[in-house]
Design a protein around this nucleic acid. Structure first.
Lengths: 232, 232
DNA sequence: ATCAGGGTTGTGGTATGCAGAATACAGTTT
DNA sequence: AAACTGTATTCTGCATACCACAACCCTGAT
């Protein structure tokens, strides 16, 4: 299945090591990411219609790539497409959020066991490092940066599982509730509680105690619903 | 969140009960489903390039909806898009399959508990009915129909959980390995084993024994990897 | 054999046109 | 005034034409 090309390269593979592939970003991708961010950040509120004309114009893009991006967003569950009416930013009910959190919980618990069992020391150290950074952001009460790093930690734990299907699905569901999750967590005591749970998570991770990590993550996500409930 | 329109209808809601909404299928959707089926059924083999020109022509569709459908397929993980090169049907390695099955197992086990706890008797009866139909197809050695019903049973168990995020994610992952799963299961003894497991599943479901159902599903999916291994 | 050019193909993107559905906006009736 | 109806307008869904440019293919020269 691997690349079986046997070319003799003028430049050795060794020499090309740290070189990062140049990434041609298609307009489709750019628009997709832009729109996704706008939804998550709330610049496009739930219920908002995505009008191809104006939106495309404001992004400086023709209808074609815009429409492609919208279809992709629909398949990711961030917008709904009503035939002949267009796309509207999806609105999540409390049950939707609960359902998503239930699945996320299960996924992260699976990831917890896999990561503790298989991840490299380097990966774990990196997550622990993220955790330390996050603590500093908490000390500074830098909510936005804290939030982003928080999401990144969860994503990193899942990624370290080495299961790409798991990573992708987790990312998809995480994206759906990012918005509401950010709005929640506003009260100081809730925030403090979340940080305490993360501290537990970090210890379990460093000890490679999958069961413990799974248990803490479960609690963490159970409480998340309470934390965000009034943000819906 | 429900429709809060307070119009006075000339026709009462009662009278409009059994009326099924007319569904306009956009070309985008039609093409999407068609292509997905073609990939799952193997008419588009892994590695095949989806050439916009010919494919569009053979489907009798212009590039516009075709390209939209391709982007959606990419987001579903069924094709890969290489910028400036086009889309190729994704090829799954054994590790990919294993990863997906691991996630599917976790998801179905979650569904098992939810369904046994919350599903209506009618839903469970319907699944049991599907099971009986499947047994008849097994008796007839009707592999294709058996396979489809088999997939439908798994999907129905998940759907009965009432968790739509779970349902959607499950469907997405299921679609990715449908193909390889169909090719597997060819040897009679494997087939018989799968049927036996389904029999257990059915009993657990009727007894609403979530733990038992979860355990059987776990075994079932663990064995699935063996069943399909040589089909990769 | 490797490499450099040159033609071909196909994608990514834009612009445009058009049928038909949705919506908004009347005008009419009761 | 409220409800209905017909019309105008907007916007989507889709097709088509067109272009730049990257990728591929082939051939010829070193």
């Amino acid at each position: 299945m691997a690349d079986s090309g046997k070319k003799n390269w003028a430049v050795s593979d060794e020499a090309m090591d740290g070189v990062q592939r140049i990434t041609r970003v298609t307009l489709h991708d750019a628009v997709l990411n832009q729109l996704r961010d706008m939804i998550i950040e709330g610049k496009l509120a739930p219920g908002t219609r995505i009008n191809e004309g104006p939106v495309g114009a404001s992004l400086g893009v023709s209808r074609t790539p815009l429409r492609e991006a919208i279809k992709t967003l629909a398949s990711e569950g961030l917008v709904e497409i009503l035939p002949a009416k267009g796309a509207i930013v999806r609105r999540f009910s409390e049950k939707d959020i609960r359902d998503i959190l239930d699945v996320l919980k299960t996924l992260e618990q699976l990831a917890a066991r896999l990561t503790c069992a298989h991840a490299s020391d380097a990966e774990i150290a990196e997550i622990a490092d993220l955790h330390q950074q996050m603590l500093r952001l908490y000390a500074d009460r830098n909510r936005l940066a804290y939030f982003k790093l928080n999401q990144e930690i969860h994503a990193a734990i899942v990624r370290a599982s080495g299961n790409s299907a798991l990573t992708q699905v987790h990312e998809q569901l995480q994206a759906r509730i990012k918005r509401v999750r950010f709005i929640g967590n506003e009260l100081p005591e809730r925030w403090a509680g979340a940080v305490a749970e993360h501290e537990e998570m970090n210890l379990a991770l460093l000890a490679r105690d999958g069961e413990k990590l799974s248990e803490v993550l479960g609690r963490h996500l159970d409480k998340t619903l309470d934390r965000v409930r009034d943000a819906i």
